[in-house]
């Protein structure tokens, strides 16, 4: 087995186990920490796909900022083990799990059938490992500049909205 393959399988194991733990842990703080682990694993998977810059951004934005916010909020709430962390109803639960399983099966089936129908060109297999960062930035700032600017506006709106939301005293129906 090549090193790349071993890396991929180890990372897959890490990502899937920690993703499982996110939805199975009853303590939300453990869920959040497992999700942070998943993010780090996904960043490592980006590295195996030669997307080094994205891996770094994934670490900074997701693992370093978003998940820290989640963990902080959860720790401030200080929820212990929850009484009803899963939805009620055995039948609906089974239905939900079944539908999710069917969805996963459908996608996997589609991927395998699609593989046999169309041969994906293995361009990147033998290509030299090039630094994709420069190409990425050129694409981002030359071709997709409008989307980039729109995202900037979106972030500004979100920042203002979040501050307004967290400072408000509960809107028009506030009792306290």
């Amino acid at each position: 087995m090549s090193v790349d393959a071993i890396l991929f399988w180890i990372l897959t194991l890490v990502v899937l186990v920690s993703a499982m733990s996110v939805i199975l842990m009853t303590n939300p703080i453990y869920s959040a920490l497992c999700l942070a682990m998943t993010m780090v694993g996904v960043a490592a998977i980006f590295v195996t796909l030669n997307a080094y810059f994205l891996a770094g951004v994934q670490l900074i934005v997701y693992a370093g900022a978003v998940m820290v916010l989640f963990v902080m909020v959860l720790m401030l709430f200080d929820l212990k083990h929850e009484l009803q962390s899963f939805s009620r109803g055995k039948f609906t639960g089974a239905l939900k799990i079944g539908s999710v399983g069917i969805l996963a099966g459908l996608i996997v089936g589609a991927v395998t059938i699609g593989k046999s129908l169309t041969e994906v060109k293995a361009v990147a297999e033998n290509a030299v490992v090039v630094d994709t960062t420069k190409i990425l930035s050129q694409n981002l700032f030359l071709k997709n500049i409008f989307g980039f600017e729109a995202l900037g506006v979106l972030l500004l709106v979100i920042a203002v909205g979040t501050v307004a939301l967290s400072r408000s005293k509960g809107g028009t129906h506030a009792r306290d």
């Binding site: 499982m20 939805i23 959860l74 899963f86 939900k96 539908s99 999710v100």
Partner: peptide
């Protein structure tokens, strides 16, 4: 991974989860 996330959305009851 996507299916796991979807299962989480369907099954869990904690807003943050």
């Amino acid at each position: 991974l996507f299916s796991l996330g979807m299962a989480g959305v369907l099954l869990r009851r904690n807003l943050i989860v």
